[in-house]
Structure formats: structure tokens, C-alpha cells
Amino acid sequence: MPAEQPTILATSGGLKPGTRTRLEFDRLLHHAVELSGVSGRAPKVTHIGTAAGDQRAFNSEMDEAARLAGFDFSHLNLFTMPNHADPEAHVLDQDVVWVNGGSVVNLLAVWRAHGLENILHKAWQSGVVLAGVSAGSICWFQGGTTDSFGPELRAVTNGLAFLPFANGVHYDSEERRRPLVHRLVADGTLGETHCTDDGVGLVYHGTELVEAVTEVPGKGAYIVTASEGADGAVEERLEPRYLG
């Protein structure tokens, strides 16, 4: 049962430390499943870990978290070759695609080499919920800020652009993120930029931002746009709905 409309959940969260396992799925990842509308069976969720090089040890930790959550869970690995003979058929058979963090620059290059950009767009249009954290959030937008090139944050501007905005992640936990977003919006490198504190997600139906949600009370989401003010950018805070 696909989502009723193309849906993206772009987050700076979704995972938390486990009690008997190293990781558990937090409320944002569960919300991605809710957005898919699946009921009456285990939700089909595939994890794409390209941004961190498809680490098999991390995949195993995600498998344990999925077992606790009761998900029908799988991985789409691209290193050293795709682990599915037909990646498109695999992705289209899912309720949710969850993309984890790492290097968004490397993720985009590898996805394009394997034609995954078109596959994911088709899945999105078909009602498969696209979701993810950090690099797995930025990828759906026109661009954002990244440490893919090194410790000094830089702009990335060649995202998939399913959403006609830029994206700022880890807005409250990495002190250089906010001023760089403001500077890049002010000089026109990035357009309107949608940002999330850690633990916050943004829900889009089609290309419309419809809601901010959070798994951590008190956190915020933000829209940064160009202005004629002192620093050339203005920031509007959005109050997320708590998923607790």
C-alpha cells in the first residue's frame, strides 16, 4: 500500500542508543513508516548506506534494530556491486527507503553511476516514502552544507533536487552549520534553505513542506531566506509537533 502522494521525510535523527542492542529506531524512523500508510503486515523498509560505504557491521546493527521494531528490513548495497540483480524492482517493492548519513558528495556520485537517481524518483512518485538522516536528508534537496570534503564545511549544490530547496542538518549541534547556511543563502549559493535541529524532521507532500516533527521536545526547524538585512538572510523558526 503506497503513500497517498509523493512523500519525503528529511531528518537530523531517527536512530538512538539501544538497551540490549547498540541501536534502536527512534520516533522519526517509525514516523516514516506511519507516513507510508502500511497496515496489517510488517512494513517493508530498505536501508541505503552508500554515504558511509555500505558498512556491513553497521548493516548488522540496523538489522538488530529492525528485528526489535518488527520491520521487514533489507539493504540496498552498492559496494562492491549492487546486492540486488534488479535494484529498481527492489526499491519499488518497499514501503520506505531510509538513507543513512556520511558523505553526501560520495553518495550522489555513486548513485548516479548506478542510475539510482531515476529509480528513487520513480519510487517517490509511486508512493514509496523517501526518508533519511544527515546526508540521507540533504540528498533529496538541491543542496546544503556538508563536511564531505573535509572538516571545513562547504556547500554542495548538485543534490537530486526532488525538493526545490536547500537543506541544513545538525543545525543546533554543529556550531558552524547555522552561520554557513546564512552566508550561502545571502550570497545566492543556496536558495531557500530548510534546516533541522538534531531529532527533528520535515515532512513534504510532493514539494510542499507540510509539517515539522520531532522526537526530542524543545527542538526546532527553520526556514532561511535571503533578505536585505544585516547579514543578507533571515531565519524563521518552525515549532515541530512532538511525536512522543
Rank of each mutant, 00 (worst) to 15 (best):
E235T: 15
L130F: 10
E174V: 15
R56K: 10
D26S: 14
L190D: 06
G206W: 05
P2N: 12
A166D: 12
R177W: 01
E88R: 15
W124Q: 00
G14H: 02
L180D: 03
D231L: 12
Y222F: 10
H205K: 14
F141C: 00
P2C: 09
S36G: 06
L15V: 09
R154Y: 02
P43F: 08
V224G: 04
M62V: 11
R241A: 11
Y242W: 14
S103L: 13
E34Q: 15
L238T: 13
Q5C: 11
A69R: 01
A42V: 05
T11G: 04
T7L: 10
G218V: 01
K219G: 08
G218H: 06
T214R: 00
S12P: 07
A161W: 09
E236Y: 13
A32T: 04
F79C: 10
V99F: 01
L160K: 02
R237F: 13
V213K: 03
G188K: 07
R56I: 13
G14F: 03
V45R: 04
R183S: 11
R56F: 08
V181S: 02
F149S: 13
E34F: 13
R154D: 10
G136V: 04
K44W: 03
D147M: 09
G188T: 01
M81T: 13
I223F: 05
A166R: 03
F141I: 04
G232W: 07
G49R: 02
V128P: 03
L209I: 06
G218I: 02
A123N: 08
G132I: 00
E174P: 00
H170V: 09
T21M: 00
V181Q: 05
L76Q: 00
G150T: 07
N167W: 06
Q55T: 10
P164C: 10
Y171K: 07
E239K: 06
T11W: 02
T50S: 06
D63Y: 05
E34T: 15
M1D: 03
